[in-house]
Amino acid sequence: MSEATFMGIPRSKIDWSPRIDYDKCDDECMECVNFCPHDVFAVRENEKPKLIVKNLENCVVFCRACANTCGLDALVFPEKTATTAHIKQIRKAGVSNG
């Protein structure tokens, strides 16, 4: 697989991935795990919590589809506006650095 980038920026520099609100998540249904085609989530069978966000950088920047499938409304994402501003800032710095 080629190096992950978004708008030419290494994916690792962009903070965009789901956060699990364990106060809401029942740690049982695993609807998000079944849904996400990018293996962002992982299930640890003998640990608590079972559900974790494992592959943060697999998450498609600005995609929040898993949050829309969560019946318990337990997935939270960063603010899009702040993420967009951050991306533009990095791109600008990249250009000015030549």
């Binding site: 969560c70 019946g71 318990l72 409304d73």
Partner: peptide, 9 residues
Amino acid sequence: LVIDGCATR
């Protein structure tokens, strides 16, 4: 007309 309760749909 479909009426879903939550996002599990």
